[in-house]
Write a protein that binds this DNA or RNA. Sequence first.
DNA 1: CTCGGTGCAAAATGTTTGCAAGTAC
DNA 2: GTACTTGCAAACATTTTGCACCGAG
Lengths: 146, 146
Amino acid sequence: MERFQDICRTHRLKMTPQRTVIYREIIRDKRHPTAEMLYRKVRRTFPTISFDTVNRTLRGFCRVGLIDAIESSGRGRMYEPNQVPHHHIKCRQCGAIVDFQDPVFDRLSVPDSIRKKYNIIGKRVVLIGTCPTCQQKGGRKHGNQG
Amino acid sequence: MERFQDICRTHRLKMTPQRTVIYREIIRDKRHPTAEMLYRKVRRTFPTISFDTVNRTLRGFCRVGLIDAIESSGRGRMYEPNQVPHHHIKCRQCGAIVDFQDPVFDRLSVPDSIRKKYNIIGKRVVLIGTCPTCQQKGGRKHGNQG
DNA sequence: CTCGGTGCAAAATGTTTGCAAGTAC
DNA sequence: GTACTTGCAAACATTTTGCACCGAG
């Protein structure tokens, strides 16, 4: 929550009640919610808020680095709090993305040839496969990978 | 091209001229084209093809594993031929994704705890940063990460 | 008091579906 | 000949923009 205050000040974002509630909800959320999902949650404590504000606020949070977005065309952009380093497993069937942590992956070093050209600010391992649920169901939806 | 034939047969996909042209174009493309970009290229050798067919065909190719999709809400889904193992650098500013290869990254082993639950069929390191072009321009567009 | 933020509505963008006619096998 | 495909158009889902009013700093 201090992080929120800090970053708002540095970027001259006003700490409106809407933004405060939105931030509180997204860092509490352990999944990767979309704007729509967050909107539904936030409305419980702030019934007059508009979907538009939630959506626009999330974009803004991304811009200043408070949170990250995980693109997933079709079913809507997903957001995640940008805190501890972690990695992703993505289910090829249902598209769900779950986090996992791994000290070895955290310590991967970026090749010099790339550091020379790019300003790398983050890294992540993405595993692609089939989640337990989809393995049982043999369910299918779309197949993709990032 | 044999791969194309094989997979079409195994999945009972008809090898229509449209599909052949689309496949040829996407494996030739070194970027990560969207359906729209591919449509424009394919139309040069197949002027009567519809955007819809390109779009639907690409989805189909994903389903059977001929190619992969990289989700990127907003500017449209990007596709890539699914050949050699490789990794991604994603520019936080312009959203461009470029491939790179790295033997060390290729050899990363998936933790047993995950293998036990998930059926992992692929893995990839994703670096997030700023590309050379955006560093110069200081350009901005959207900020996100997968 | 001022500038950025909010909420509403409209516009833009991109994806998916239904269907009749066409074609690979 | 049959089942899968294509192309077109409409339906959907989602994101983005314009603008008047409001409120945090």
